[in-house]
Design a protein around this nucleic acid. Structure first.
Length: 227
DNA sequence: GCGACAG
DNA sequence: ATCTTGTCGC
């Protein structure tokens, strides 16, 4: 994919916040997913322990059998600290590099982090969606903001995630007895379609297959980069 | 002022 | 995110 480059971002936290407020207005929260969704990408980033380098991995799977279509990766250097609410400014540069190495254009992307379940409604899934133009869904392992009741402990059960009285996401039990996942639309998806997509990607693990495999790949890259 | 806080 | 062995439980 041809994508704009984000290296060269030299923003202060305050500038990043202002940029998020601007970009949040460009996010499209209407369902733009094809029916049926055939290919789903998953993306994840792995960090080097001491160092300043990290590894991004993207995998593209075919539904409904999770057949691996393509994988791509990239490595980069940290240029922005981890600040809750500003994750995309840290991870997006290397993530976009991985996407530019991809030949397949997936129908949708599952991102490891929040979508609009974010203080300024602009989590990393929104940012990635805006930059790639692809439908994206945020699929985080823990909560950034918002409140909710505990979902029932059975696979597929969920409760709304409320922020300022608005349902910005869903708290989903992805597998029996595990901590729930925080699902929210990123770009070109709405909550029902985002939730349906994640549910169609659930296998036998807590994480949906696309992000689970991307996590494995980025981890593998980091470990073999040591030797 | 005090907690909360994706990865 | 990452550092870490065994261990308790479905």
């Amino acid at each position: 994919m041809d994508l704009p480059c984000l290296h060269g971002w030299r923003l202060t936290g305050r500038e990043a916040v202002a940029l998020q407020r601007e970009l949040a207005e460009k996010v499209v929260l209407a369902d733009g997913l094809p029916r049926p969704v055939r290919t789903v990408a998953g993306v994840d980033v792995s960090y080097e322990r001491n160092g300043d380098s990290f590894f991004a991995a993207v995998v593209v799977l075919e539904l409904p059998d999770f057949k691996l279509i393509e994988e791509a990766s990239a490595t980069g250097r940290m240029s922005f600290p981890y600040v809750p609410g500003l994750l995309s400014f840290r991870e997006l540069p290397v993530v976009l590099d991985a996407f530019s190495a991809l030949r397949t254009v997936p129908d949708a992307v599952l991102v490891d982090g929040q979508g609009i379940a974010h203080p300024r409604r602009f989590g990393i899934a929104c940012h990635l969606g805006l930059w790639t133009g692809l439908p994206t869904v945020g699929c985080a392992k823990s909560r950034l903001c918002g409140s909710h009741l505990p979902p029932a402990p059975h696979k597929g059960d969920w409760v709304p995630l409320l922020l300022d009285g608005e349902a910005v996401g869903a708290v989903l039990t992805s597998r029996r007895g595990v901590r729930p996942l925080y699902i929210s639309p990123g770009h070109r998806t709405d909550l029902p379609s985002a939730l349906r997509l994640v549910q169609s990607c659930l296998g036998s693990y807590r994480l949906p297959e696309p992000t689970r495999l991307a996590h494995l790949l980025s981890n593998r890259l980091r470990l073999q980069a040591r030797n």
